[in-house]
């Protein structure tokens, strides 16, 4: 860990006015980890925990979650559990109870990849040191992405919450030196392409103040399915966030995204489109899931994720949509 200075921000303006060598710290569960292993080395930590970016509220404008709320707290809120089960489930399947008690919503959305090459400074990594190369393409890549893989990086985005939020068309609310703005979370995450070091459409000094999820009644028919090697405290091999709008056995609308397979939380609008107007059946779900992997580029060790992605989606769709004999 490199030496750094620390500042407790008294106001949002004070926080966003800090320089490019600074990093915001809330729960610190990912940032401090990465500082300990020299992967991140901000000169200054700006502690935002006293800022008023709190609250979980539901009204006609949607579900608004303050960026500083803890994962554990949000997961248990009755409005979230009842109206957005996919969000609650994604949170509860993240990390461990201890981490969920510390980690904030904003921090969760900003967490860095678990790629081992990224996390070890003795190895090359295009995300950490642009242009240094990526050993994962020919090395250990079982956990890596099959979608959105460019020439420079194949690391997965690790957040479960982000998969659920991207599926539900959530927006992220930002405040910076130039004011406030709101963009779709799906647009917030960038594909690695040739600049895997640029992960987010965030400007210098900008701070996540919260997320807003549109309020749609049928989001209560949703679920998050996470497939992992071990039962707890483990990142996804593949996950699916699914919400279905049903009229008896007919699918009126759908929201779908996948995790553990993409270089960003992977929204699947074509899969959703393929379901609309169809009657629920295993065959319908399988045909739709097939579309998910059509652009997949598996690596040497993760070819199984192509099958796993389709199976995970199908299983999640059956779970949410039912109708399978």
């Amino acid at each position: 860990m490199k030496a750094f200075s620390y500042k407790l921000a008294g106001s949002t303006d004070e926080a966003t006015g800090t320089g490019t060598q600074s990093a915001f710290i809330a729960g610190g569960t990912n940032l401090v980890d990465l500082m300990k292993i020299d992967v991140m080395d901000p000169k200054e930590l700006v502690d935002i925990n006293q800022l008023p970016m709190r609250g979980v509220t539901l009204d006609n404008n949607g579900l608004r979650i303050g960026a500083l709320e803890k994962m554990a707290y949000v997961a248990e809120q009755p409005d979230v559990v009842q109206h957005f089960p996919v969000i609650s489930q994604a949170l509860l399947k993240s990390a461990s109870a201890q981490l969920r008690n510390m980690a904030s919503i904003g921090g969760n959305l900003m967490q860095r990849t678990r790629c081992g090459y990224f996390r070890d400074v003795i190895m090359p990594c295009n995300k950490r040191v642009p242009g240094s190369g990526c050993p994962a393409f020919t090395g250990e890549n079982r956990m890596h992405a099959i979608l959105g893989v460019g020439n420079a990086c194949c690391a997965t985005h690790p957040s479960d919450l982000a998969v659920a939020l991207v599926a539900l068309d959530a927006s992220i609310n930002l405040q910076g030196p130039k004011g406030t703005r709101s963009i779709k979370l799906d647009d917030f995450y960038l594909l690695p392409k040739d600049t895997p070091n640029r992960e987010h459409a965030i400007e210098p000094g900008e701070l996540i103040t919260g997320v807003t999820v549109p309020h749609t009644n049928w989001y209560q028919r949703s679920a998050y399915l996470k497939i992992r090697d071990r039962e707890s405290y483990e990142f996804a091999l593949c996950s699916a966030a699914v919400a279905l709008d049903m009229d008896a056995f007919m699918i009126r609308d759908a929201r779908i995204a996948a995790g553990g397979v993409g270089t960003k939380p992977w929204k699947l609008p074509e899969v959703a489109q393929a379901l609309i107007g169809k009657r629920v059946s295993q065959a319908t779900f399988e045909q739709a899931a097939e579309i998910a992997a059509k652009d997949a580029h598996p690596l040497s060790q993760n070819g199984f994720k192509v099958t796993l992605l389709k199976r995970t989606l199908t299983r999640a769709l059956v779970q949410v949509g039912g109708g399978v004999a």
């Binding site: 090459y117 070890d120 050993p135 090395g139």
Partner: peptide, 9 residues
């Protein structure tokens, strides 16, 4: 890592 002997985990 088969190329470098580096231990990934």
């Amino acid at each position: 890592d088969p190329n470098s002997g580096w231990i990934a985990n």
